[in-house]
Simulated assay, not measured.
Amino acid sequence: MEAEPPELTFNGQVVRSKGVGLEWTPVLKSAISHRTILLTDAAVAVMRRRLKLLAARRDAEVATAADVVFVFPTPRRHGVPDHDAMKKSLRRLFDAAGHPEMTLHSIRRMVERRLEEAGLSRMDRESIMGHTVQVAERHYSTHGVPERGLEALRRPGATQDAKSKL
């Protein structure tokens, strides 16, 4: 959050281990999955609100161990973010909103489509979305990729044009 522009670095994941349950590990699917992306203004606003809420929980001495470690802890399963619990929550939200056809994968594809409609090249989209072998074979460096993604999304009308096509 202190970088200019603010950024998010992927350097690990929560995994379910037999006999242990959910735990954070500094290992991703592949070496190219370790990446840093720039955050949009909207994402920064969400992160700042969440960090403010976590600070208030710590000040009130009601913060859990997961509140200290994770920005978006899960209320169940000892607070460790749980991909399965998130998918179930999204499923309930999609169904309640009248969109039973939507999935977490649908959201991912929507983001990629918006990047494409904003004019970002295929290699840059794949790099931002975390595609692995294909990107490594075609793209030697990701220098400038996140910046180009934000620039494409900030173009006048890019977000609105993408929304109208969905």
Rank of each mutant, 00 (worst) to 15 (best):
G12Y: 13
G12Q: 11
G12L: 06
V14S: 08
V14I: 01
S17Y: 15
K18C: 08
G19S: 09
G21Y: 15
W24L: 04
T25S: 10
P26R: 02
P26H: 10
V27H: 15
V27P: 00
L28S: 02
K29Y: 14
S30H: 13
I32P: 03
I32T: 10
S33K: 09
H34T: 00
R35P: 09
T36W: 02
T36D: 06
L38E: 05
L38Y: 07
L38D: 03
L38G: 04
T40V: 05
A42F: 15
V44D: 09
V44C: 09
A45H: 15
V46I: 01
M47S: 10
M47H: 13
L53Q: 11
L53W: 11
L54T: 00
A56W: 13
D59I: 00
V62P: 01
A63V: 05
A63T: 03
T64I: 06
T64P: 02
A66Y: 10
D67I: 01
V68H: 12
V68P: 08
V69C: 04
V71L: 06
P73W: 03
T74V: 12
P75F: 14
H78T: 12
H78K: 15
G79I: 13
P81D: 12
D82A: 14
D84C: 15
A85P: 15
A85G: 14
K87C: 12
K88E: 07
K88G: 12
L90C: 12
R91S: 14
R92V: 03
L93C: 06
F94C: 06
D95V: 05
H99E: 10
P100G: 09
E101K: 15
M102W: 09
T103E: 08
T103I: 01
T103P: 07
L104G: 11
S106H: 09
I107T: 08
R108T: 06
R109C: 09
V111Y: 00
E112W: 10
R113L: 09
E117V: 07
A118N: 05
G119F: 05
G119T: 05
G119K: 11
L120C: 03
R122S: 10
S127H: 06
I128K: 02
I128Y: 02
M129I: 06
G130A: 05
H131I: 00
V135E: 04
V135Q: 10
A136S: 14
H139I: 13
S141W: 15
T142L: 09
T142K: 10
E147I: 01
R148E: 03
G149A: 08
L150D: 04
E151T: 04
